[in-house]
Write a protein that binds this DNA or RNA. Structure first.
Lengths: 326, 326
DNA sequence: CTGTTAGCGCATTCAG
DNA sequence: CTGAATGCGCTAACAG
């Protein structure tokens, strides 16, 4: 069933059918009704592929993320997908993992599919070998980077002010009398670096003791690192992390060592994921505005697609959420 | 840049270019190399749209889920996406929420996009007003239902044996001396019903006291329900839930009332999500095989797309995971 | 082994 | 306001 079949049955030309389908051009009311009746009768659905041949667009956007099982990516991707859906766009989801080859493979698939834009989530793209492909793609396709930064034509970025958030967290804990800080982070991404810098800013400003550790993502690596530090007799009274999940590993280890939270040690996570309300005590954390990032990314993209001038870089402020661990 | 440009530059016909692109038909080695050189030179990427015009497929599958922020959907969707990617398929992700209108809208979009198949995750599709559209779509497009069931041509289902899992959980707790059971569930879906039936099976078999409550999804509704029951003086020594998140609400409330877990009350969740290891005490739960469900769904789909006979219904057994709450 | 040709289903001129 | 003709970029016969 195609536009020809409809046209024949309605006794009009395919051009007319196309017009009523797209509500373009003027069509006499009686003609329109005739066509619409046939459309309804066969429950006709136009082929986006054939349409795409002409318009060179499938009204589809690619989302490239590391792993949707991670709550951060899930939340941002959800927000993007929902905003896009309202605009009539579909979303192709790509879980690339950390492998550069995979990322390139996905990027290529998206180009083949002629997506209207690619949204990179999480800026794990500090990888220099990805710069070339991305810049190449940006020649024809606008690229939005969520939580990353890239100065290049047709590439737009939306970021959360992670640096300031971390700094403010330390400020707060210092004001509460904390003097010896630990920072555990799990990824060397753009956002990861911002957080680290924010931590550095604050500890140097306040002249407090501090140590920084890179741990693998997840609960256990953090648990083990803290256990190692406790066993070694290291003295600390505040732990900040780049991820809620990591902070929960810290919490578990502290509990196992009978170190009270927040009496002896304060703990803060990052992202304000559901995890932070599931653990005990409930985790103080940073709301990194996952939903808003997604919404804003789509807003920027929408402008770009309409040919309007859009802001190259947008920064959103995080909120500090204090629960039971501070 | 299209196939004609490549053909001209390589001094061959478009048919030859198409052949090397698709590795179809015999091409002399020297010719192939000539073409490949040009392909590389321009970093040529064929248009999936134009290809789709002929093959009537974009090598794209639609995943329809309620909400990807829910860890269950995230895990299943991730598994599906990854398996599909290996086969060269992309995934269009749809978060429908609970609204039937939305679901129909998404379904229609997927049909327009001529997806090769639609995978429904979570069988929230007990909604009768969805039956017609789904059956209609299945006329042309195979449909896979993950964690649901539907007897209809060209519709395939993959489910977890939730009923048995719940039953075995109760069996276990009875064997541990528990005598008075609560079951909190949060969704009236296919899977939700299976779990409920499993619970019923077991309590009637063991002749133990039991009560069943429908609560809204999330931590707080469960918290409040348990608080209400505790305040009312209800006596119980085991709580099972249809979701880890719900179980954590139970845990929090029990702790607030100084009821010890597992000494006074045993608690079991469902899904073996990360939440279950984040809470304290760590939650005993049911591994509902989210990854495997995704993998199997794609395996079935792959058979169907190849025209092979595929199993109409596949059932996967869940595992019981005992941690600190039982 | 290679080239020619004919569509795929639609949007879009341009006439009428 | 409506229709006929054209082409988007590719695959798939069919010839050669």
């Amino acid at each position: 069933m195609n536009i020809y079949d409809i046209a024949r049955e309605a006794n009009v030309s395919i051009a007319t059918v196309s017009r009523v389908l797209n509500d373009s051009g003027r069509v006499r009311d009686i003609t329109r009704q005739k066509v619409e009746a046939v459309l309804k009768k066969y429950n006709y659905v136009p082929s986006a592929i054939a349409r795409g041949m002409m318009t060179n667009s499938l009204k589809t956007i690619g989302i490239v993320a590391i792993d949707i099982r991670n709550l951060y990516y899930a939340n941002v991707a959800h927000s993007i997908e929902q905003s896009l859906s309202v605009l009539g766009f579909n979303t192709i989801l790509c879980n690339t993992g950390y492998d550069t080859e995979q990322k390139i493979k996905y990027l290529r698939m998206l180009v083949e599919k002629k997506v209207d834009s690619i949204i990179l989530v999480g800026s794990p793209f500090k990888d220099p070998s990805l710069d070339k492909p991305i810049e190449q793609i940006s020649k024809n396709t606008p690229i939005i980077i969520v939580n990353g930064h890239y100065e290049y034509p047709n590439i737009y970025s939306v970021q959360c002010n992670d640096r300031s958030a971390l700094k403010r967290s330390v400020d707060y804990l210092v004001s509460k009398g904390r003097k010896s800080f630990l920072y555990l982070y799990d990824a060397e991404t753009f956002s990861g670096r911002q957080k680290l810098l924010g931590f550095m800013d604050a500890v140097s400003k306040h002249q407090v003791k501090s140590e920084v550790f890179l741990v693998k993502p997840g609960l256990e690596p953090a648990y083990e690192k803290i256990q190692e530090l406790v066993s070694s007799g290291l003295d600390f009274d505040a732990v900040l992390t780049s991820e809620d999940f990591t902070a929960i590993g810290v919490l578990k280890c502290l509990a196992a060592n009978n170190i009270r939270v927040p009496e002896d040690v304060s703990v803060m996570g990052f992202n304000n994921s559901v995890l932070s309300v599931c653990c005990t005590p409930a985790l103080s954390t940073v709301d990194s505005k996952m939903e808003e990032m997604g919404r804003v990314a789509v807003k920027v993209l929408h402008k770009v697609l309409k040919g309007e001038k859009a802001e190259t870089s947008t920064v959103i402020d995080a909120d500090l959420i204090f629960r039971e661990t501070t």
